[in-house]
């Protein structure tokens, strides 16, 4: 686990998160300390060990595609930060 210096700008971009210079400096320091701790995982022999995505084996669950009662438009839009004509309003995406 050879780790290069944390690129906070790249990570913030991937996470769609605007960070202040102070946040970047603080997080870089704290995350370096945490990753130093986490690197102890490299001591564990995991050869021939299967990964567990869940504690218990999980299988896909199917159900019939049947119509059933759901939220009314007004209920579904109740928490929308901006709306117009029973739709969520967003900034223009295509020029």
């Amino acid at each position: 686990m050879n780790r290069t210096e944390l690129d906070l700008d790249a990570l913030a971009r991937l996470a769609r998160l605007a960070l202040t210079p102070e946040e970047k400096a603080t997080f870089a320091r704290q995350l370096a300390e945490l990753l130093g701790h986490i690197e102890r995982l490299s001591q564990v022999d995991v050869s021939n060990v299967e990964p567990s995505a869940h504690a218990h084996p999980q299988h896909n669950v199917w159900q019939e595609d049947e119509p059933r009662p759901g939220l009314l438009p007004a209920e579904a839009l109740r928490n929308a930060p901006a709306q117009r004509d029973q739709m969520i309003a967003v900034p223009k995406v295509v020029e």
Binding site: L41, V44, P51
Partner: peptide, 12 residues
């Protein structure tokens, strides 16, 4: 190095 390895340690 991190996520997949952690999932394996979880198995252990």
């Amino acid at each position: 190095a991190y996520y997949l390895r952690a999932q394996k340690v979880r198995t252990l």
